[in-house]
């Protein structure tokens, strides 16, 4: 995470005075895979949209986002739309909703290709569309350009959406819950495919999801958002083996496991507070197994600080917890 492809500095986003992203710092090197994880309402999708310059006009944004060395022209719609669909690609959850039912897949692909390369000939665009569909492993790709979205399964449509996101040869792909609507087998297939494509192209990926499990085999780094705050930035391997932040631990523990059957699942008590509702302390304090009622957690906002392993964690008690974990 040394930066240079994407550098987000002190990014804050508010809607009508409600702060949904608070002072986010995040860096991505070329080819990095970052999992951006949080519950609904954590601000994870807002962060994705901010990088894409897709926030609504009523959002007030401060801070900077630098991409490939230059500040992103946030607020300049024309300039942003050239980057979006070009050097930054975007894939989202609902493959069915992403395609107009009355246009062929070829026309959707042509649209994406022409956006990235306005002077391309029809014929070259069609060849390129077929090549992109082949890259996402749609068989008979040239012939299938003439088919309509309803003639494809959900998993295939998700792959076609990935193909259209690749039209501009992006250096960064932002994938917002790309597999949440899919079956387990299809989900695994789409992630494997994305894995191969990203490796082959050296493309960086930000995978936005509520499910830590999805991040497991796909991402190298993990950023956890809670209530608009970045609470933990670690490698996935370290987060899975020994999650330092109590919220990350809570998310991991809540997941049912294949290899054991507990009488009850461990849960994170309470609900995510509304954006901007947190007082002066740690936003997670009221739900925290470790810090609930602890004076410092209630009164002081924890800073995102580097620990000995090089991870960054915003928790007053994170050190205490690793000691507990070590003695067990």
């Amino acid at each position: 995470m040394t930066g240079s492809l994407l550098e987000i500095e002190r990014l804050s986003v508010s809607f009508g005075g409600l702060r949904v992203l608070d002072d986010i710092d995040l860096k991505l090197a070329p080819g990095d895979r970052l999992g951006l994880v949080g519950e609904s309402g954590s601000g994870k999708s807002t962060l994705g949209l901010a990088i894409l310059g897709l926030l609504v006009d009523t959002a007030s944004v401060s801070g900077t986002i630098r991409f490939a060395g230059a500040a992103l022209p946030i607020g300049d719609d024309r300039a942003m739309s050239a980057i979006r669909g070009g050097r930054i690609g975007f894939v989202y959850q609902d493959p069915m909703g992403g395609f107009s039912p009355i246009h062929t897949v070829g026309r959707h692909m042509h649209h994406a290709i022409a956006a990235a390369e306005p002077d391309i000939s029809r014929r070259a665009a069609r060849e390129r569309a077929a090549a992109l569909l082949a890259e996402v492993e749609i068989r008979d790709s040239a012939a299938r350009l003439d088919d309509y979205p309803h003639q494809f399964s959900g998993g295939m449509l998700q792959r076609i959406m990935i193909a259209s996101a690749l039209a501009g040869n992006p250096q960064l792909l932002i994938a917002d819950e790309p597999t949440t609507a899919l079956d387990a087998t299809t989900q695994a297939n789409v992630l494997r495919l994305l894995d191969r494509i990203a490796s082959a192209r050296g493309m960086a990926v930000i995978l936005i999801t509520h499910d830590l499990g999805v991040v497991g085999r796909f991402c190298g780094d993990l950023a956890v958002l809670y209530c608009g705050n970045l609470v933990s930035l670690t490698t996935v391997a370290r987060a899975m083996a020994n999650p330092v932040h109590p919220y990350t631990r809570g998310l991991l523990d809540a997941r049912p496991r294949l290899d054991e059957k507990p009488a009850r699942l461990r849960t994170i008590g309470g609900v995510l507070p509304r954006a901007g509702a947190a007082g002066g302390g740690c936003a997670f304090e009221p739900r925290c197994a470790l810090g609930r009622g602890v004076a410092i957690c209630r009164n002081e906002r924890p800073l995102l600080l580097a620990n000995r392993s090089g991870d960054r964690v915003a928790c007053h008690l994170a050190g205490a917890e690793s000691e507990v974990a070590a003695s067990c």
Binding site: N189, G216, R257
Partner: peptide, 14 residues
Amino acid sequence: KGLLEASRWSDHRG
């Protein structure tokens, strides 16, 4: 078995 393998793929400790 295929379903299980797919689930393992997204099982965080799998």
